[in-house]
């Protein structure tokens, strides 16, 4: 009797779908590899993007998985710039957004929508609109994301979804804009990573974005590699 009740109940709640999360990581763009602990995003983790370039940072983080075939869902960021998202590397064919009507969603609706998103998408970008989600609901959703292997990226600080990793743009400077002339063509951003599994803060410098809108490290990674002689010299 107990089984029957619980099986049907679970089936109705839709708890039963899922994915075989064999590979527990999602690959990121090369620019972020040196910054992240395993050079990849851990599935089931919550990543917060803060600072003046939070939107670009979040889109840049979503771009890697997106190019590898993952679907990206956006919620609570109605003003996201699609052209910028595409330039940063997000594949528009696998991008879906949920917008709030003017009246807004209540907590229960957010819970249902985000649960459906977690079940079907690998990366979720959650913006300020989701601040209204209660902490308890958010905790349940995060647990579900862990079971399902989805990565939640929050744009801006989000108290409900406490981040495992926290990216922050500590310094940013736009190049190219003068006093009445020029055009802003790229931005040098210093990104700091802190978090639970990061013993001491890590830093990197990125072009976020570069002149053509993409993300790139300011120094190519090859420079740090040591030079090995391939044939005897001298």
């Amino acid at each position: 009797m107990v089984v029957a009740a619980s099986l049907v109940e679970l089936a109705e709640r839709g708890v039963l779908s899922g994915v075989v999360a064999r590979e527990r990581t999602l690959s990121v763009l090369p620019a972020f590899e040196s910054l992240l602990p395993n050079a990849a995003l851990q599935r089931g983790s919550v990543v917060a993007c803060e600072g003046s370039a939070a939107s670009s940072l979040a889109l840049g983080l979503a771009a890697g998985p997106s190019q590898a075939g993952a679907w990206v869902a956006v919620a609570g960021v109605p003003d996201i710039g699609l052209a910028a998202a595409v330039e940063l590397g997000v594949v528009p064919a696998r991008l879906v957004m949920v917008t709030e009507p003017t009246a807004g969603f209540n907590d229960a609706t957010w819970a249902d929508v985000l649960a459906a998103m977690i079940d079907g998408f690998d990366v979720l970008l959650l913006g300020p609109g989701t601040l209204r989600v209660r902490t308890n609901t958010a905790r349940r959703l995060v647990a579900r994301a862990q079971a399902r292997g989805a990565v939640i990226v929050t744009v801006g600080a989000n108290a409900s979804f406490a981040g495992d990793l926290r990216f922050e743009v500590t310094q940013a400077s736009w190049q190219g804009l003068g006093d009445g002339h020029g055009v802003a063509h790229d931005r040098r951003a210093r990104v700091q990573l802190t978090g639970r599994r990061v013993p001491r803060p890590r830093h990197t410098e990125l072009w976020l974005p570069t002149t053509n809108g993409a993300v790139a490290a300011t120094q190519p990674a090859a420079e740090s590699a040591s030079v090995v002689a391939l044939c005897p010299t001298g």
Binding site: S17, V113, D119, F121, D122
Partner: peptide, 23 residues
């Protein structure tokens, strides 16, 4: 992944209506 996403979109449309789920 495509199949799952398509199914999730159908469910989100059922929850919030077709005007709120966009591509």
């Amino acid at each position: 992944a495509d199949d799952w996403a398509v199914r999730a979109v159908a469910r989100m449309v059922a929850i919030v209506g077709e005007q709120q789920v966009l591509v």
